[in-house]
Write a protein that binds this DNA or RNA. Structure first.
Length: 181
DNA sequence: TGAGTGATTGACT
DNA sequence: GTCAATCACTCAT
């Protein structure tokens, strides 16, 4: 499965975090693909200490620190050595709303998980989970019967290279939970 | 060794 | 709409 296909397939999956004794969960409703030979991808200029998990194997979390303030969560998608991943941009909150609101310092459900930095803050995700296998606690991925329906493909957000590629995907029915509405 | 940029967010005008 | 927060990395001295 190609990375854009994986991006589509993670929409609707449930991300569960059990960090600091607090269980939080949300449904993935927005994701972006980052490929090898993609100038917008951290992997395009080779392996570094920060991006090493991005080069596989698939199923790992790639968690990086950006703008001096924020953590961002990715899922590694491609075989070892390729350097491809899916950036998780927004979730619909399902469980642990109170814990997420406390970590975020604001209560509005639509402001808990509607952005990559917000997800990590609300769910307690930081660099200690870089390279973590998503099959294991405290950060796991579940599939349930939810159907995404029609999926919108748009240019990715916050980049200056390859801005024409429509690799930001979200279910049309989940638009209220998506970042930068 | 140092300036510039960045897969962001929130406060402010 | 503007801008600061302030870290990892790239690229140019």
């Amino acid at each position: 499965m190609s990375t854009p296909e994986v991006t589509r397939s993670v929409l609707g999956m449930v991300l569960v975090s059990d960090i600091g004794g607090e269980r939080t969960a949300g449904r993935i409703v927005e994701a972006e693909a980052y490929l090898k030979d993609d100038p917008a991808s951290h992997s395009s200029r080779g392996i570094t200490k920060r991006n090493a998990p991005m080069f596989g194997p698939p199923g790992l979390a790639y968690v990086y620190f950006t703008y001096g303030n924020h953590w961002c969560l990715n899922f590694v998608t491609a075989p070892k050595g390729h350097g491809e991943a899916v950036l998780i941009r927004a979730l619909e909150p399902l469980e642990g709303l109170d814990a997420m609101a406390r970590r975020r310092g604001r209560a509005a459900p639509r402001d808990l998980l509607s952005g990559p930095g917000k997800i990590c803050q609300a769910m307690g995700i930081d660099g200690s989970l870089n390279g973590h296998p998503l099959a294991l606690p405290p950060l796991t991925l579940l599939r349930d019967r939810w159907e995404p329906g029609e999926i919108a493909a748009r240019p990715r957000i916050g980049i200056s290279q390859s801005v024409d590629k429509p690799w930001r995907l979200y279910p049309v029915r989940s638009r209220e939970w998506v970042s930068r509405r």
